[in-house]
Amino acid sequence: MSLTPALQDAVDAFQSMAEQDRLQLLLEYADDLPPLPERYADHPDLGERVAECQSPVFLFVEVDEAVHVHATAPEEAPTTRGFASILVQGLEGASVDEVLAVPADMPRLLGLDRAVSPLRLRGMAGMLGRIQRQVREQSAG
């Protein structure tokens, strides 16, 4: 298993907490979802919709010498925002190889299986899968 240092920090934070406190940490991440850069703020159509999420989540991935991930998720969907925030913060500035090495089951490492629905965990896995696909496509071209 290979996680970026920031993703490992998030996993460690969740795993160090009692199970009943993990949802609160996820909600704190939701409050910390970085705003979209101005070039995307008025153009959510430029992002990729994450169909696995019930809420309208859009991802924006850029690859230059590093990977940059941006996301939108509605405030009324705090768990989804929290998952998006973990990925945005956890993958920001990582190399292509680091992003592609993150295991598909990384959301399960947070230990939220009993705190959130399996559908929400699939949504986060969907976000990660779409980010990795975009990274592969952009780094190949």
Rank of each mutant, 00 (worst) to 15 (best):
R122F: 02
R49I: 11
D9S: 15
V11A: 12
F83A: 07
A125C: 01
L59K: 07
V57R: 09
D21N: 14
L26N: 05
Q24L: 13
M106Y: 15
C53M: 08
R22C: 11
G82M: 04
V99R: 04
H43V: 01
S2E: 14
E76K: 13
A84N: 06
E48N: 03
L121V: 13
E98P: 06
V63S: 07
A101V: 03
R130A: 12
D45Q: 15
I131Y: 10
V135Q: 07
A104E: 14
P74Y: 06
G123Q: 05
E76F: 13
E92P: 00
D12L: 12
G82H: 07
F83D: 01
A115G: 05
L110T: 07
G47I: 08
M1H: 11
E62P: 02
H43G: 02
R108T: 09
P78V: 02
A77Q: 09
Q8E: 15
L36F: 01
S2W: 06
L110S: 05
A6S: 12
V63K: 08
L87Y: 05
P5L: 12
A66T: 14
G141E: 13
V57G: 09
H43S: 12
V61L: 05
L110H: 03
G123V: 02
D97W: 00
V67K: 02
D113L: 10
G93R: 04
A41P: 10
L119F: 13
E52M: 09
S139I: 04
E48S: 12
A71R: 02
D113N: 14
M127R: 02
A77Y: 03
A51T: 11
D97Q: 14
V61E: 01
V50D: 06
G111H: 03
L128R: 04
P56N: 13
A73P: 05
G93K: 04
D32N: 14
L33K: 01
P37F: 02
L109E: 12
F14H: 10
G82N: 06
G82K: 03
V67L: 07
A13H: 14
V96R: 08
L59N: 03
R108Y: 11
